[in-house]
Amino acid sequence: MNPYEMQWSSATPGLLIILLDQSGSMTNKYDDNMTKSEFASKAVNRVINTLIQRNFDGESPKNRAFISVIGYDNYVHELCSGYLKDLDAKPLHIDDVMKKQSDGAGGLVEIPYKMPVWVEPITKDGATNMKGAFEMAKAIIEKWMADKPGHPAPVVINISDGAPYYDYKTVEGCMDETTQVAKQLMGLKCEDGNVLLFNALIKKAGANLVFPSEVQEGSSDEARFIFNISSEVPQAYAAAAAKNDLPLKDGSRGCIFEADGVQLVSLIDFGSSKGLGDIK
């Protein structure tokens, strides 16, 4: 079997780790309606729910994935973790929302819908200990790989709005330290391939850039940092990239700069595609 071709299954569950920036800047406005933290939490909840739903046969979800969501501010916190069945059984709460869908005659109708919530947005200020989050992800993955060597390569998705900053060090120093840990993380290897690390920088004001294959001259240090800590997208993910409208070229790195809402959900969908693609 070629690298990264293993599907997530009950026999060989996938491991998806989502790292969520919960620093003070995430309380800033994303748009008129919500903060970046609210927006990112919503995207994460939506993707967990989709993964459960795609593996749900009416009775219960199949345990085809283990998901861990880790938040980071000054410190690192496990926000939720579990196989799909565990997550389905224990959301923090279930919200009643209205969902728009086609009425079959060209119009839209609103239908009451239950939306489980596993991750809440933050309201407090804090630093950006991305390095600590990568260290925790690395520890989880090392244990997972030791226990399950024949399983699909784990996927880590980091959602942030900027560079790391912690322990009153310089941003440059934090980026260097964090890059080192990220490289160690991406160096972990199982039979299916190396750990994949994908990054999304949430929308600010800059130009949107999806899956770049090089860092442009004159790019900011922050852009270089994100590019350097992103895995090259493997060929086995090409179909998932196309399905999520993520343009892929030779040498593309799995990162999105200034991601909007659709792109953030697309990136998480893309990262978890080995658990979504097989409808049979």
Binding site: F56, G58, K280
Partner: peptide
């Protein structure tokens, strides 16, 4: 219990059928 395949055999009608319920659907 997770198996979504079903079959049916009826000698009276000389018929045999197999059906495969799709995983990503509800109560397949």
């Amino acid at each position: 219990a997770d198996c979504q395949d079903r079959f049916s055999i009826n000698p009276a009608t000389g018929s045999v059928a197999v059906s495969d319920g799709m995983s990503q659907s509800l109560f397949p």
